[in-house]
Design a protein around this nucleic acid. Structure first.
Lengths: 203, 203, 203, 203
DNA sequence: GATGAATGAGAATTCATTCAT
DNA sequence: TATGAATGAATTCTCATTCAT
C-alpha cells in the first residue's frame, strides 16, 4: 500500500505555505519553487495537489472568502444599533497580518490574471456583504434604531466599501495597532451618529 | 547639430502610454515592448528616458500622486460642514477610468517591488490627506460645525481610508455610475449626520 | 503465501495496453501514467514488470517483430509465381489499425532513443524478410517462373522495401480501404509482369 | 540604426542548424537549447524568428516539401518509358544524408504532435506526386509505351509509395551505397518490365 | 538620439523513476 | 506484490536589459 496522505490536509498546508510566501514576497515575485521550499516539498509535488500556480492562487482566494462568508452568514439579527456597531467594529478589528494578506489579492486582481474569476469572486463577496448589512439596516430601521431616511442597500454597500478601505489601509500602510484602534473608534462613533435617527430635519 | 528633443515632454508621453498599457493589461502582464509600441517608439528608446521598467513605474506613481497632492494643497478652508461635505463628494466623484487606475497601484504594491518606495509614497500621501482633513475638521470644530467629541486626526485619517475604500470598489468591481452615485449620496449623508454636533449625549 | 501472479501474462497485458496508448497518443506524448491507467494498474506496478519505459517499448517492438518473423518463417516455398504473388498480396492486405501501429515505430526510431537497438532490430527483420523473398525468388527462377535476369537478393530486398512503403502509406495517410485495394491490385499486377520471364530481350 | 539582419537568411540558417540537430539526435531528444547552440545563437534569439519549437519544425517540413514539390512541378512529359524510368531512378538516387532526414519526419508524425498539419502536408505531397506520375503514365499509355491494362491513378499512387519505401529504407537502415544502387537497378528493371505493354494476355 | 536584434537568467510545468507503506 | 505520493532534472518559453549600428 502506498503512503497514505490526507489530501485535504496537504492541500491546506500548501495553501498556508503559499499564503505566507505571497504575503512575504508578493505574488508575482514568488516562484513556485519558493512556495515548494516554504512547504517543505519538491516543486513537482505541488503539481500533484494543484494544476497550476493560478489554480493554487484561486484556491487561496476561495478559501479566504469562504471563511469570510461563513462569518457573515451566521448571526442573529442585531436588535439595537449599538449591537450592530459592535459587530462592525469586530469585523474591522482583525490582526494586522490578516489585513496584510489583502495586498496579495490586489496583486492578483486585474487583467494580469488570465481569468477575472478573482474579481468576480470578490465582487460577489462584497455584494453579499452589502446585502447582509442591508438586511440588518432594514431591520433596525423598522425598529426605529436607524434613520429611515437612508436607502438601506446603497448605504450598506457603501458601508462595506468604507470598512474595506479602513482595513485595507491598515494592511497596506503599516498603521500601528494603537493608531488603528483610535481610527476604528472614531469610525464607529461616526457610523453611530450617522445612522441614528435624529429628531431635527436633515438635508 | 543634434536633434533637439524635449526630454520632459518625451518622458511624459511615455508615461502616458505606459499608464494606458498598464491599465489595459495590468502591470505584470505588460512588457516593455508593449509600452514601446503604445508610445510609438522602439524598446531601446525607452531606456534613454528611463533606467528601467521600475523607474518608469515609479515615475508614473510619482506623477499621479503629485497631481493628487496638488489638488489637496490648494483650497480655502471650508467655512461650513456642508461645504466640506461637498468637497468630499467631489473628491470621490471621479470618472470610472481614473478609479480603474488604482488597481495598477495595487499590483505594484508590496514586496514584489524591489523597493517599497511605492508603499511609502502612497502611505505618505494618505497621511498628508489625513492631515489635510484634520485641519479642516479642527477648523470646523472651532466653528461649531463639527462635533468636538471627535478626535480630529484619527477621524480624518479614517475618513481618508473610507473614501479610498469607496473609490476603490468602484474601480475594482465595475460598479455602474448610477449605483455609485447612490452610494456616494448615502455616504455623504452619513458623514454629515455623523460629524455634525448633536445636542443630546452620545456614548 | 504470496500472491501468485502469472508474470508472463501480466507483462503481455501491460504491453497490450501500452501499444493501445502509444497508437492513440503517440509514443512521446504517452506518459507512464497513461499506460498504467490503460492497464488498470498503478504506475509503480509497471516498474515491477519492466525496468523502464524504454524497456517496455523494446519489448513491444520485440514482440511485434517476433510475430512477423513467425509469419515469415513458416510456409512451403511457392511453386508458381502466382502463388508467390498471392502471398505478397496477403502480406500487404493487413487491417488499417495494424498499419497505424507502424507510425509508433517511427517515432521510436532514430537517435532519440538511447540505444539504436530498435533500428538494428527492424533492419535485421527486413534483411531477413529480404532473404526469405530471395529464397522464394531463386526457387522460382529455377522453375522458370521468374526471369533469371534479376539479381534475386537485391530484387528481394527492394521488394521488401516497396511493400513496406505501400503498407506504410496506408497507415500514415489514412488511405481508405477501397482505394488501398486498388493500389494493391496494381502493385501486384506490376510485380507479376515485372518478375515474369519474357521471351523478347530487355535492357 | 539597429543592426540590420537579413531575416529570411537568418531563418534559413536556423532551420539548417535545427535540421542538423534533429537528424543527429532525433526531434524529441533535441532541446531548443541544442538548436540554439548549433546555430550559434542564444535560446531567446530563436524565438525572435520562430514562435515555438513546433513552428520551427513546421517550417522545416514546409521548406523540405516545397523543394520536393518544385522538383515535381517542372519537367517535360517523358516521351518514352525509358525516359520515365530514368526519371524515377534519379528521384530515388538521393544522397544518404538526405534520406536520413526522413526519419525526423516520422518522429514528428502522429498524434504526439499537437496539430496533424504535418501528416496532411505530407499526405498531400504524395497525392500530388501520385497525380504527377499518373499524368506521365497516362501520356505514355496513349503513346503505347505503357500497358493500358493498368489503372493509371492507382498504379501511380502505388508507385509513389513503393519509391518512398525504397528511399526510406536506405535512410533508416544504413544500407550502403553499393547495395542501394543494386537495389535501385532491380527496382527500375522490374518497374520497366512491369509497366511495358506485352503482346500475350495477362490476368 | 534612435533602433531593434541579441541575450540569458529565470519562470512554470512535466514526467520517468523511486520507495515507504 | 502493489501502490501512488514524492522527487527534481529537464523542457519550453518570456522578457528586461544591452549595445552595435
Amino acid at each position: 500500500m502506498p503512503k497514505v496522505v490526507d489530501k485535504a490536509r496537504m492541500r491546506d498546508e500548501i495553501l498556508e505555505a503559499a499564503m505566507g510566501v505571497f504575503v512575504e514576497k508578493g505574488y508575482h515575485a514568488s516562484s513556485v519553487s519558493d512556495v515548494a521550499r516554504a512547504a517543505g516539498l519538491a516543486k513537482g509535488t505541488l503539481y500533484i495537489y494543484f494544476d497550476s500556480k493560478e489554480a493554487m492562487t484561486t484556491a487561496i482566494v476561495d478559501r479566504h472568502f469562504a471563511t469570510l462568508e461563513g462569518q457573515i452568514a451566521g448571526g442573529e439579527p442585531c436588535e439595537t444599533l449599538d449591537a450592530f456597531l459592535d459587530e462592525l467594529y469586530a469585523t474591522m478589528d482583525i490582526p494586522a497580518e490578516e489585513a496584510s494578506f489583502h495586498r496579495v489579492f490586489f496583486e492578483v486582481f486585474g487583467p494580469s490574471f488570465a481569468s477575472d474569476a478573482f474579481t468576480c469572486h470578490v465582487a460577489r463577496f462584497f455584494d453579499r456583504l452589502g446585502a447582509h448589512y442591508a438586511d440588518r439596516i432594514s431591520y433596525l430601521q423598522q425598529r426605529g434604531e436607524i434613520s429611515d431616511q437612508l436607502h438601506a442597500p446603497s448605504m450598506a454597500r457603501a458601508l462595506a466599501s468604507m470598512m474595506d478601505g479602513v482595513v485595507l489601509h491598515m494592511g497596506l500602510f503599516d498603521i500601528n495597532r494603537r493608531r488603528y484602534r483610535r481610527m476604528l473608534r472614531e469610525t464607529i462613533m461616526m457610523f453611530g451618529a450617522g445612522l441614528r435617527p435624529i429628531p431635527d430635519k436633515r438635508v
